[in-house]
Amino acid sequence: MSTLRDFAYVFIVSDKAESFGLLTKVLIPVLLTLSLSLPYIFPGVKISAVQTLVALLYEVAIAVYLAGFRRFVGMLRFIGLFILLGFTLNIVSVFMGAEPFDPIYIALATLRVVAVVLAITLLFQMLSISEIRYLLLKLKLKYYSEVFAVAMAQLPSTFISFSEAYIAAKLKLGGRSIASLIKPLVVESILNSRYVAEALYMHGLPPVARPRLLSPLDPVLLVPAVVVSLLHLMVT
């Protein structure tokens, strides 16, 4: 339950993010993600271990500041899924005939994946639903902005339902076909959507207020992010 609750909070904006401007909140994850993804986009580019570690430390510091240590651990669990997936793919590829990877290379690649995913997770920690809707509207994606708002609003109650369905299914089925718990959750979501439609009918969607673009506190977060992102130019 606790794990699930912390996991749900990965997708919920932190109160502390209010102090920063929208531009900074978008730029930080985008800069970090792009700089760490350079080797994937341009195979010739190399990222040093130092840069990956510094980026990771910087992200951890922001995540702990925004979400608190406990919820940061929840984020790590989320990221752990990606690590597991990447590790499994590496192992499977060896069995499929690929050349065995250097363990140090695997460790560094894994760290980089963690840093990229953590950067993306920071987006949810920093941007409110209203701000994401604002960005989507600016990108002329009005329909998706509305769908996104409704989906994100219902996410917490879906997580609450998940734990109930999980216990019921686990005890009833004794661990067999635990995937069956998807069915009640889907039905619950459909039933819920009727209430959502009725509530939207009565209230409409709240308008998207123009968010604050800049804040005096922005340099505190933004300058280190720029330095970390450009570190490979300095180190390599």
């Binding site: 409110s128 209203s130 708002a149 209230h203 308008p207 207020a209």
Partner: peptide, 23 residues
């Protein structure tokens, strides 16, 4: 309605009510 969770879009109560009132 009976499922009151569905009345809210913004997660923070103030944001949801304030934006609605402005609208």
């Amino acid at each position: 309605n009976q499922n009151v969770y569905t009345h809210f879009i913004e997660h923070v109560v103030k944001s949801d009510l304030y934006n609605t009132s402005i609208a």
